[in-house]
Design a protein around this nucleic acid. Sequence first.
DNA 1: CCTCTAAAAAATATCTATATTTTTATAAAA
DNA 2: TTTTATAAAAATATAGATATTTTTTAGAGG
Lengths: 229, 229
Amino acid sequence: MTSALPRPNLAIGAYRHLKRDIIRGVYAPGEKLRMSDLKTRYDLGVGPMREALSQLVSERLVTAVSQRGYRVAEMSIKELEDLYDARAQLEGLVLELAIARGGDDWEAQILAKAHALSKVVEVHSADDMLDIWDARHQAFHGAIAAGCDSPHLLQTRAWLFDQAERYRHLWLCQTVFSAEALDAKRHEHAALTDAILARDAATACTMMREHLMTPVPIIKEVLREQGLV
Amino acid sequence: MTSALPRPNLAIGAYRHLKRDIIRGVYAPGEKLRMSDLKTRYDLGVGPMREALSQLVSERLVTAVSQRGYRVAEMSIKELEDLYDARAQLEGLVLELAIARGGDDWEAQILAKAHALSKVVEVHSADDMLDIWDARHQAFHGAIAAGCDSPHLLQTRAWLFDQAERYRHLWLCQTVFSAEALDAKRHEHAALTDAILARDAATACTMMREHLMTPVPIIKEVLREQGLV
DNA sequence: CCTCTAAAAAATATCTATATTTTTATAAAA
DNA sequence: TTTTATAAAAATATAGATATTTTTTAGAGG
């Protein structure tokens, strides 16, 4: 049937796998990605691997120089600071629009996602805890942003999120396994939800911008400790 | 010398050329891009062509379905409206930050670019006129945006610009060859510059958002006339 | 006329071979 | 010791061959 989606080709799988590995820090910033190693690790040939790398170049997670190969993109304190500032500013804009444009359903969704997020207190295995908490955390923030009712703004937001994900991962590893940090987050999320439901745009946007900047000093510390910059 | 940049590979040239063709409307929205045709037109083999397409897929100018090939991304009135709304909102945010963060040099640059833009009145050949005016127009708006002092916000701005470029091209073709339209633009740009130099953020941002929306009805008309949607 | 089936043609995706470029190792000269 | 040159090894990029999938065409049956 021509209407059913065919099986994803090899490049798609390699793209997903390599992207995940980059975000999780399997490769160091600036590390050379040699085709002979990639072919083995991701179990495919040169053609599809180059396709996957081409996409990651477009997404700025990988840098390419003709005849010199591919490298994982660098990280820096300066980039971290600008990236998080940009994200905070954009999230403030998106929230302001959401408060202006979002309806009752939007509010209901926020409450539902906030509830699910606050329920993550049980101790699981390391990877499970990180994935579960973050999935719910993203769903919470995603529900808030969705009220802006602009696919392109959300796309733009996702782009910055993608750029930030390597940095975020460092922060996640510090946060998700600390009951104290999770508790602080829980309080921030609750206060944020209150301001949003009160439709207090000025307060909510200020809180949101500040909320988004809280990981920055933590990430800086980790970057230095791990000698990543 | 390893420090000199090597010659760009075939994929890079194909990417640039195909992207330009898509933006200029050489292909219809949704049109199938067959590899046999692409190989001939852009004079290269399957491998590099697939690499170029992979990048354009990441940039959303091309859609891909495994085993079914590649198509130029669709266009729609709905997308146009959301895209321009998103751009206007983001440009407002960027301008607000620029007014807060930009210095004297920033003001000087705006004046210089505004001047160069206003000087495009001479009649040139069709392609020259379009390219010259648009280069100066982009430089003018780019100079304004640069004051936000955030590479990532500017990257985000560029992303939306890229998405909009196909639509913009339709508007450009209507505007650049009309003395009346150019005159109206000249007045808008002058008023905008005045508000910015006066550091009147509220007025400037409102004007900017409105300024960015002015092409929308024109583009809608063109889309309908040309049966593109 | 429409629908279904099978075969042929066309298109897609990937591997392999190969030409080209870069990097590395080594030896010689300063 | 450092620098330069050269050869060998490794890496990069691409064309062409080929297996697989999809689309088109033709013919038969209702």
